[in-house]
């Protein structure tokens, strides 16, 4: 496979991936927007435009984002340490394992 073919394939694949990811959102995403209620008119359902993708994505992948926003991106200072310091400990532990496996010098 020469470089040009690979370029073509990879670009096409990356666009295809984004389309595939977008499809379930575009098909499923319906937000019920309630206009100011006067008397008796029906509530309007409509497909979201691409500019409002944040709302659509948030609704479709609600579970994923609730986990992320409740456990990772909480905005509380102490929760940062709960993720960052274990990372440091894992680094230290992993490299200690490396020494034991390698037998040191």
């Amino acid at each position: 496979m020469d470089a040009l073919t690979l370029i073509g394939i990879l670009t096409a694949v990356s666009i295809a991936v984004s389309v595939v990811i977008w499809l379930p959102v575009a098909l499923k995403a319906k937000v019920r927007r309630t206009e100011m209620y006067l008397s008796g008119e029906p509530q309007v359902n409509f497909n979201l435009g691409i500019t409002e993708v944040s709302w659509a994505v948030r609704r479709v992948f609600e579970k994923l984002y609730s986990v992320v926003l409740n456990y990772v991106q909480t905005g509380v200072f102490n929760d940062w340490f709960a993720i960052s310091l274990p990372y440091l400990l894992i680094l230290l532990a992993l490299l200690t394992v490396a020494i034991i496996v390698g037998g040191g010098v």
Binding site: V72, Q73, T74, G75, V76, F77, N78, W80
Partner: peptide, 8 residues
């Protein structure tokens, strides 16, 4: 814990 207007 109360200074969390910015959610990371």
């Amino acid at each position: 814990r109360k200074i969390k207007e910015l959610k990371g």
